[in-house]
Amino acid sequence: MKANLSGLRLLRTLIQRGWDALTVAIVAAFLFPYAFMVLSAFKPRLETFKFANWILKPSLWFTKLQLDNFEQILDRFDLNILFYMKNSLIIAVASTLLTMIIAIPATYSFARFDFRRKEAIAYGFLFLQMVPGISIVFALYFIAQQLKLHDTHAFLIFVYLLWNIPYAIWMLRGFVSAIPQDLEEAAMVDGASRFTAFRLVTLPLMVGGLAATSILIFIGVWNEFSLAFFLTSLNSRTLPTSIAFFQTHSGIKWGTMFATATLGTLPVVIFALIVRRYFVSALTFGAVKG
């Protein structure tokens, strides 16, 4: 009887380990396409298409990897990858900063005051956030032509605000509301103005939320394709829209492309992992807390 019981327990543990293994395998399968892409960036040019070789003979991973593709990006100025990266960085940083400067007061107002039509206005922002970029990009294209702003950093920075500001307001609202109003009121009783109370009491408490929101907005702009693709041509081309330039008359330059994709995605992946605690809120506009 006793032996039977411990046998049962062993079986149960085995089943549990089986489920664990399945879970790990599934997650690994989700990671694989990206891992293989990063690996391909380090492959010699002739090896790019030999998939079977690289999966069946892992020894190649340690003997044949090299940095040629990355050297090409840095050396060959006709590819301009660094230039596109610089553009992306300028546009993403500027648009994120501007978004936060405009969105923080608005968020504070939504979280701390009661006024007529408050929820209607908040949902108005949310609805506009839903408008697909591709559906108004050609209208924006003509507007840019009229204002002589086509292919400028400034226009793109400004256009992104349409999506960034509503997103920031909805994300930050939860963070402000989570901080008790009493703290601010105590400071105001002590003679601080509303602004000072906000700056000295609430703001320091929501630094985490602010950082997370900024990073998520930065990632969104850094990755954005449809607007940047049609509103820029040469001067302010961004990294995601540079894909057309890998297509030459002799086919797509896969090696360089993999290296660029690696350089373009690694910082974002690292950033995202830093703010992973906030990621579920980020996906649901703050509606669900992770």
Partner: peptide, 13 residues
């Protein structure tokens, strides 16, 4: 945490 990766990759890439 690993599952966040596919979501944040540059869609054009």
């Amino acid at each position: 945490a690993v599952l966040i990766i596919p979501i944040v990759l540059m869609p054009s890439m």
